[in-house]
Design a protein around this nucleic acid. Structure first.
Lengths: 220, 220
DNA sequence: ACAAAAGTGTTCGATATACACCCATGT
DNA sequence: ACATGGGTGTATATCGAACACTTTTGT
């Protein structure tokens, strides 16, 4: 009896000032009815990442997500049926992507990380692991911008950093640093939510690449 | 036909001013006669890390190594026989540990990372991945001290940092920072290799934990 | 008018970096 | 004596951290 091999994907987005994770409600046993990460068995001749993309697409309708391998979970008792090792992947997307529940999944939804219900298998642990990775990535990658729409305001970006890092940041220092990095293009558009309108910016990937070559990091 | 699951371990040490990796010469097909990372199939009810420790012990005689999961390699053609996914682990040990070639391995040896021969399967890629991880770990962990004996000199420690980071460091700045961190205990012993004897130090794990709590990093 | 969120500069302390000479030993 | 590697201090620049008020809008 061989060891089973699955992939699971943790996809985050940022919406309503909260970090959210993409979950499906399981339509089949085991753990039927419970929320779980999108995922499933790896095909015989399939790349791991392709398997993760396929499962994500099949179960949630999400496509064109850039995934990175997160960690492999191999506790012998993590699946009650039989030995299954799962390779977890991490993805970051802007909010508002169209979703569509697949055949195995009764429901798809973005759930805020705060107050998650009990998840299937060891998926709670996988989500924690993903959050930790995201926290680290915020320091040296464009993770923060992948979680936002193409146009975003600085208060919004700062709230994202604060949500992920779980601490408050100083508004002036935050903006000063973003300004210094030179990776944001100010647009002639303002978002008029609430009170005073906030200027919108877009991220300039090219400038970021140059910074990376120089080894410059984010300071938050 | 199910997907096979193996573990491979990349164990580094530092000896003769060079970073070395532990390799075995394969005694069986496929790739018989070629150098490879210690590793093998995961047991039906075995933890992944335990499997890695077991294979390491069986093939090289090394025990009591602290391993961390590195990455999972799943290219469908990485093993010519059949589909095998391998979960790689990283270990760091002091030089001089006793080795003993196991049954599957015709030979065991520490090989300097510079000028490695062609390795079996995708093991060259796995080693590169491990080196990259080690480089990162040097910044925020005790990785540097795990690679050295309990007693070591500052020139030796610096050479280790330089070998891993692949760049020269300023002697005075290096020592100043180590002094500032306060994680080294100067011993009343000197190593008289070459010319002027070098003072020996030992690492103080307790002090390091305190630094970690404060989020202080190494600056190299 | 007032409440709420957007926007804006300066100061200070810490630390990374650059840099050159003397010392102890073996040959 | 000399070659080799061990050991030491200072000055500067950069960057992260702390900190308060004005502006614009909706109600």
């Amino acid at each position: 009896m061989a060891i089973g091999l699955t992939v699971d994907t943790v996809v985050f987005t940022f919406e309503d000032s909260a970090l959210k994770v993409l979950l499906v409600r399981r339509g089949n046993a085991p753990q039927r009815g419970r929320l779980a990460l999108p995922g499933g068995f790896v095909g015989e001749r399939e790349n791991l990442e392709q398997a993760a993309l396929r499962e994500l697409r099949e179960e949630t309708g999400l496509r064109h997500v850039s995934l990175e391998q997160l960690y492999s979970f191999g506790n012998p008792r993590r699946d009650p049926r039989r030995r299954v090792v799962s390779i977890a992947y991490l993805g970051l997307v802007a909010r508002g992507r169209p979703l569509r529940a697949g055949s195995d999944a009764a429901q798809v939804a973005w759930l805020p990380l705060e107050k998650l219900p009990k998840l299937a298998f060891d998926h709670c642990q996988i989500v924690s692991c993903a959050l930790e990775r995201l926290r680290n990535k915020l320091d040296y990658s464009i993770a923060g911008f992948q979680l936002l729409p193409r146009k975003f305001s600085l208060p919004e970006l700062q709230k994202l950093y604060e949500a992920v890092l779980d601490r408050e940041l100083d508004k002036r220092n935050f903006r000063k640093k973003m300004d210094l990095l030179g990776i944001l293009k100010p647009l002639n558009e303002w978002r008029r939510t609430g009170r005073k309108p906030a200027r919108l910016y877009s991220f300039i990937p090219k400038k970021f690449e140059k910074l990376k070559d120089k080894g410059i990091l984010f300071p938050f």
